[in-house]
């Protein structure tokens, strides 16, 4: 079958399975694009992976797009690309999230490869993935405030001046942290003892000399 025929069949199969729940499906720049509500986010991936004819078992990409200034109906889109190894076919499905919703189920239980891209989408786009084993920031420091790829985040960043140690956002908070850091602590209070050190101490105590 040619690629167009395959896409036609895939579109038909998707419509048969999900029916009116899909918002749209069609060819865009030579690739099948499906848009769907957040309830279907996990279901489409599960269907596509387990389907005995299609077998979309190759994970390509997941990312989040902020359509803040473009549409009134929704704000965030979670875009997933999957590939079928048996048919050499890629397709894209976009989960449209209404303005008040910023979370979708994770795909890590189906595709291990979704792990870090979902963390990236959380860190930069602010979409939370429910059920992800480690939903923390990946590119930015843990105490970073805001999600840079949202359209309301200024390109210059929210902080002023250079990044202080510990990455604090406003100047007010920065001053207090800098003041705190001026009193250095003795090293042994900061670092926990390593197993080697405890072992050495034991040996030292028995021998009586350093």
């Amino acid at each position: 079958m040619t690629r167009d025929e395959l896409y036609d069949r895939l579109e038909k199969d998707l419509r048969d399975r999900f029916g009116d729940q899909l918002y749209s499906a069609g060819i865009d720049y030579g690739m099948l694009v499906v848009t769907n509500p957040p309830e279907l986010h996990h279901e489409i991936a599960a269907w596509a992976k387990e389907h005995e004819f299609w077998k979309f078992n190759h994970f390509i990409d997941i990312t989040a797009v902020d359509q803040y200034t473009r549409f009134d109906t929704h704000r965030f889109e979670v875009v997933v690309h999957l590939r079928s190894h048996t048919h050499n076919l890629k397709f894209r499905y976009k989960t449209l999230l209404p303005a008040d919703r910023t979370h979708v189920p994770t795909l890590t239980d189906l595709y291990a490869g979704a792990s870090w891209s979902e963390r990236e989408a959380y860190d930069l786009g602010g979409i939370t993935f429910d059920g992800h084993p480690r939903m923390t920031r990946i590119m930015n420091p843990d105490d970073f405030v805001g999600h840079p790829l949202r359209k309301d985040f200024p390109v210059k960043g929210l902080h002023r001046g250079s990044f202080p140690r510990g990455t604090v956002v406003s100047n007010k908070r920065r001053e207090s942290v800098v003041a705190k850091q001026t009193k250095p602590k003795p090293a042994d209070q900061i670092l926990p003892r390593t197993p080697l050190e405890t072992r050495r101490e034991r040996v030292r105590g028995e021998d009586g000399d350093a």
């Binding site: 390509i60 902020d66 792990s115 870090w116 891209s117």
Partner: peptide, 19 residues
């Protein structure tokens, strides 16, 4: 570009490093 996402191959290799 309204939004540009780079799908970098390294990210997908390196996330499996723990395994």
């Amino acid at each position: 570009p309204y939004r540009l996402h780079f799908r970098s191959p390294c990210l997908y290799y390196y996330q499996s490093i723990e395994e």
